[in-house]
Amino acid sequence: MTNLIISNICNANCDFCFASSFLHERENHSKQKFMSFDEIRSYVHLFDQADIHDIRLLGGEPTLHPAFDEIIAFAKANSKHITIFTNGCLSEIALAALENLSPDECAIIMNMNAKISQEQIRTREKTLIRLGDKVISGYTITQPVFSLDSLIQTILDYNLQRIVRLGLSLPIFSKKNKALHPKQFPVAGHCLAQQSFTAFQYGIQIEPDCGFVRCMFSEDDFQILKKHDFHYVSCCSPVIDICSEGHFLHCFALSEKFYEKYHESMGIHEIRENLIERTNPWQISGIYPECGTCLYKRSGECCGGCLSMILNRFHPIGNSGN
């Protein structure tokens, strides 16, 4: 899997966003708001060579791309499955471009706790009505105590796909964004176990994104979650983000440190392997000082958490960090 960052701008203002500072810098540096259609076309051909059949469009807000409808048509003409990560405030053109695609052809992962205006909430409702069967709800945990009740209600009201893609608000390495502190994880873990009762009751599956650690769940909570089809996975298996001008990122959270400039001699998979290899030395540690002695980490049941959190714990010496 690989993400294409086709827009450097967004019409929401989420304080937990881990893409915004990077994209602002890119926009200021290159004066480019969007990836050009030519560049998108060339990456799709690169996907063909790498046997990648899913085009995952990200931003910023990808649907703001002025050629969004053409990109969708191009992806469809090339028999690609399309995944879009959006805040749901879609223009009529974007809605029309996606409306005729079946859920087999397209998945819309919608950030349901995006910080948007009242007017944008009404626009999003229109999106939910027209594209609901393709929408997978995304929710980012920004507080240790949270509720999925209204999200579950929205899923039922608009007949969305019965999946919640659950993320943790994670820090961007060397930048500032709103992120959960590792000390808050156990409370969030307990809260999640409690929320899972209602989700399970309505046949809604909660799928964890990256950053979860095993020790954030007590044994009791872990069993509750297991019973409710929550498939805990703790690994750092990055989906490479491709930005304009050939920048390949390990992930947004580590965009300051782990990136490669595209070179024709390397394929996508090779670039990804290189980026993963560069992060390997850091995996010796974890998000807590106790991770080094933890049996979950030793057995591979836990990877030690988000690398960005791990890197933030380290101190540089001398000329490090340049």
Binding site: P289, E290, C291, T293, I317, N319
Partner: peptide, 14 residues
């Protein structure tokens, strides 16, 4: 002297 590009952290096991 320390070489460049070193990072360190205090973990429970050292």
């Amino acid at each position: 002297s320390f070489t460049n590009n070193l990072y360190w952290v205090n973990d429970r096991n050292g």
